Lab assay of single mutants.
Amino acid sequence: KKRTSIEVSVKGVLETHFLKCPKPAAQEISSLADSLQLEKEVVRVWFCNRRQKEKR
């Protein structure tokens, strides 16, 4: 599977969401993915990776 490069503008939206809610529910991930025209899996993994980054 190819890596998905995420646009800077999209990263901004994801970051804003992350600050409000670092662990979104599946439904939130779905609606976020739809509005950003990304796959749900890509958004889910982004949040996973972002949470791990917080720990470091």
Rank of each mutant, 00 (worst) to 15 (best):
K1T: 10
K1H: 04
K2V: 11
K2I: 08
R3F: 09
R3M: 12
T4C: 09
T4V: 12
S5L: 12
S5H: 10
S5Y: 09
I6M: 14
V8I: 13
V8F: 06
V8E: 15
S9T: 12
S9R: 11
V10M: 13
V10A: 15
V10Y: 06
V10R: 03
K11S: 06
K11E: 15
K11I: 13
G12Y: 12
G12L: 12
V13Y: 08
V13D: 05
V13R: 09
L14R: 02
L14F: 01
L14A: 00
E15N: 01
T16K: 15
T16N: 09
H17Q: 06
H17I: 05
F18L: 00
F18H: 09
L19I: 06
L19W: 04
L19M: 13
K20I: 05
C21A: 03
P22T: 02
P22N: 11
K23A: 14
A25G: 15
A25R: 11
A26N: 12
A26S: 11
Q27V: 07
E28H: 04
E28I: 06
I29S: 03
I29G: 00
S30V: 11
S30P: 04
S30M: 09
S30A: 14
S31G: 07
S31C: 07
S31Q: 12
L32A: 09
A33Q: 04
A33D: 00
D34P: 01
D34F: 05
S35G: 04
S35N: 06
Q37W: 01
L38Q: 01
L38I: 13
K40F: 14
K40M: 09
E41G: 03
E41M: 00
E41L: 00
V42H: 01
V42K: 05
V42F: 08
V43H: 00
V43K: 00
R44N: 13
R44F: 00
V45W: 08
W46S: 03
W46K: 04
F47T: 01
F47R: 04
C48V: 13
N49P: 03
R50V: 04
R50Y: 05
R50I: 00
R50T: 03
R51H: 02
R51Q: 09
R51A: 08
R51V: 07
K53Q: 09
K53Y: 04
K53H: 09
K53E: 14
K53C: 07
E54L: 02
E54P: 01
E54N: 02
E54K: 05
K55F: 10
K55R: 12
K55D: 09
K55N: 10
R56W: 07
